[in-house]
């Protein structure tokens, strides 16, 4: 059962990657082509997901939006993990006062729960795709940093590091060849779980009008545009939301699968 779920996740992820890298294969039409005579059409064989206020085909737009939306998720996660790695390594490897300082600093960041840190960042640097991506990365960093720090603390006491020190290996060698690869194993799980979360957060910001803006074919922006027509034309918000969910579920299933495998071995 668990294996099956993980494979469903992998399949969905491959589908999303194809949509991101070669959207033309799945949806040959132009995502920006408007056709006012065909506006607000309900889902049908001609328009699988219906059309929007300018008669643009929503299926085509959702497929072409995959790249942008995944890129936002991946970049936000990369920013979050990158920052967390710096803090986690400083705290886990540095002298005691550095660990103390970093941990206190993370504690302060934890007092801005959830979206708050992201909103604070946006109020300083203004809304937009780039700022909202950085904001999501920043907001997720403290959580990752705490996990990385505890992992580093476990690994640095491992017997193989002691052995490497006894053999006279240098500090850099031990860091690059022993410590980082062992921390990276758990990082991989964090990244796969995190990408789904980042997409969800970034799309929430777009939905609130603080991220990507219409008419870009990005899921959050499409949702934000469809919000006005929610009561009469549900398909405008339903399908972009469905794809956000599919990517978040896929990343969660794959992440959980990896977690299980790490635990077993």
């Amino acid at each position: 059962m668990k294996r099956l779920l993980a494979w469903i996740g992998v399949t969905a992820l491959i589908f999303l990657l194809i949509a991101a890298l070669a959207p033309g294969l799945l949806a040959p039409a132009d995502p920006l082509a408007i056709n006012p005579t065909q506006s607000f059409r309900a889902p049908s064989f001609d328009h699988l997901f219906g059309t929007d206020e300018s008669g643009r085909d929503i299926y085509t737009r959702v497929i072409h939006g995959t790249g942008a939306s995944l890129l936002i998720g991946v970049s936000a996660t990369a920013i979050g993990i990158g920052l967390a790695l710096v803090f986690g390594l400083l705290a886990g490897l540095g002298p005691r006062w550095l660990d103390f300082g970093t941990t206190r600093f993370l504690e302060v960041l934890f007092a801005f729960p959830g979206l708050l840190l992201a909103l604070l960042f946006i109020v300083v640097y203004g809304p937009g795709v780039i700022t909202s991506t950085i904001a999501v990365g920043l907001a997720t960093a403290p959580g990752y940093a705490r996990i990385i720090r505890s992992r580093v603390l476990v690994v640095r006491r491992a017997p193989y590091l002691e052995a490497a020190a006894v053999l006279g290996r240098g500090w850099w060698f031990r860091l690059w060849r022993h410590l980082l690869p062992n921390v990276a194993g758990s990082l991989f799980v964090l990244v796969t779980l995190g990408i789904g979360q980042s997409i969800v957060w970034a799309s929430s910001l777009s939905y609130l009008g603080l991220g990507a803006v219409p008419p870009a074919a990005e899921w959050g922006a499409m949702l934000s545009a469809g919000r006005t027509y929610l009561a009469s034309f549900w398909w405008m918000t339903f399908f972009p939301g469905l794809f956000i969910m599919i990517s978040a579920v896929a990343s969660t299933l794959v992440g959980r699968g990896l977690q299980e495998r790490n635990r077993d071995s």
Partner: peptide, 22 residues
């Protein structure tokens, strides 16, 4: 659990509105 991990609040709200109101 899946809803918790993967469904954004706004999407859940929209779905609930579609189901229970519309």
């Amino acid at each position: 659990e899946v809803i918790a991990a993967a469904v954004p609040h706004f999407w859940l709200a929209i779905s609930l509105i579609l189901l229970f109101s519309t």
